[in-house]
Design a binder for these strands. Structure first.
Length: 281
DNA sequence: GTCCATGTTCTTTA
DNA sequence: CTAAAGAACATGGA
C-alpha cells in the first residue's frame, strides 16, 4: 500500500520513538526477504544504535551508529510497526528487532520493530556504506518544474507510465499518479514529450499539493496500510479519481473512467482531463 | 473456482 | 537503442 505519503508517515511515526535506541536482538524468520542473499543481517544489526531514520522514494532508510545503512521496502502489503514485545506476533512477520532505550532513559516495556509482509513483494536491503538512492529519480516534494520538464521531454512514453518509473521520479505509485494527473488536468495517455510547458508546471504543482495533503491525512488506507503505530490513514476519503470508476467526478459530475495502462488500472475524468489531440500517443 | 490488488523486474515483441 | 505488453513473484479478499 505504500507510496510516498504512506512511507513518510511510517518514518514520521517511527523516528521519534526509536532514534538513539539500540537493537539488542534480531530475529529473522525468513532469510529470503533480505537482499543481498548471503549477508548476515542479524550480525550487522545486533548491538547497533539507530542514528537516524529517513525516507528516500518509497524506502525507509535506517542509518546506524557505525555509519552503515539498510532500508525496508514495503512492497504492496508490507507493514513496519513498533509494538510491545509481548504483543502477539502476526503471521508473515519476517523480521523482529528488540529495541533497548538510550542510556539515562527510564526503562519502559520492551519494544520491537516488526516487519510483516504477506505477499513478500517488499523486503529488507542491506546497504553497508552505499547510498540509498542509487538509480532513483529526484524527490517530487522538492522537484523544480524545470527539472521535471527536462526529464519528461526526453521520452515519448505516456505520462502515467513515466511517472510510475522510479528512475524518473522517486515515490509516486498508482494512487498518487492518478490523483496528481487529475489535479493537473492531464490525460494519463498524454505523451510526455508533447506536454506543454504550462502543463508540466501544473503537474509539478499538483504532485506537491496532492502529496502534502496526503501526508497531512496520514496516507491512504485501501486495505492493509497502517503507520508504525498501527493506525490507518484517511486520505482515501479524499481521492478524486483513484478507485472511483463509474462514480461522478467531484468537479463536473462526469463518470470517472477506468482504463489499463502499463498493466495498472488508471482512473481519470474524461472531461477534466481531456485528451488534447496534440498530446496523444 | 474467478478476478483484483497501493510494487518491481524480467522477458518478449515490435 | 526505445517502448509497450505480459508475465512473474505470493497472498488474501470480494
Amino acid at each position: 500500500m505504500p507510496e510516498l505519503p504512506e512511507v513518510q508517515t511510517v518514518v514520521d511515526t517511527l523516528r521519534p520513538r526509536i532514534t538513539g535506541w539500540r537493537i539488542t536482538e534480531v530475529r529473522l524468520s525468513r532469510t529470503d526477504v533480505v537482499t543481498p542473499g548471503g549477508c548476515d543481517l542479524p550480525g550487522h544489526l545486533r548491538n547497533r544504535t539507530v542514528r537516524s531514520i529517513d525516507r528516500r522514494g518509497k524506502r525507509v532508510v535506517f542509518t546506524l551508529d557505525d555509519g552503515n545503512r539498510f532500508y525496508v521496502h514495503l512492497g504492496m502489503t508490507g507493514r513496519l510497526t513498533l509494538e510491545p514485545a509481548e504483543a502477539e506476533v502476526a503471521p508473515h512477520t519476517h523480521l523482529l528487532l528488540d529495541m533497548g532505550p538510550p542510556p539515562g532513559l527510564a526503562i519502559r516495556r520492551l519494544q520491537q520493530v516488526r516487519f510483516r509482509d504477506p505477499r513478500r513483494f517488499g523486503g529488507v536491503w542491506w546497504l553497508g556504506g552505499a547510498d540509498a538512492g542509487e538509480n532513483m529519480g529526484p524527490e517530487p516534494l522538492t522537484l523544480r518544474s524545470s527539472e521535471l520538464l527536462r526529464r519528461l521531454a526526453g521520452t515519448t512514453r505516456a505520462v502515467k507510465t513515466a511517472l510510475l518509473d522510479q528512475r524518473l521520479l522517486a515515490g509516486l505509485g498508482n494512487i498518487y499518479v492518478d490523483e496528481s494527473l487529475f489535479v493537473a488536468g492531464i490525460h494519463p495517455q498524454a505523451r510526455c514529450d508533447r506536454l506543454a510547458v504550462e502543463q508540466v508546471r501544473a503537474l509539478c504543482r499538483a504532485m506537491k499539493q496532492v502529496l502534502r495533503r496526503a501526508i497531512r491525512h496520514r496516507g491512504s488506507t485501501l486495505r492493509d496500510y497502517v503507520d508504525a503505530e498501527g493506525k490507518a490513514g484517511g486520505f482515501q476519503r479524499l481521492h478524486r479519481v483513484y478507485d472511483r470508476a463509474g462514480q461522478p467526478c467531484r468537479n463536473c459530475r462526469t463518470r470517472i473512467e477506468r482504463i489499463v495502462l502499463g498493466g495498472r488500472s488508471t482512473h481519470f475524468c474524461p472531461r477534466c482531463q481531456p485528451p488534447s489531440p496534440a498530446s496523444r500517443g
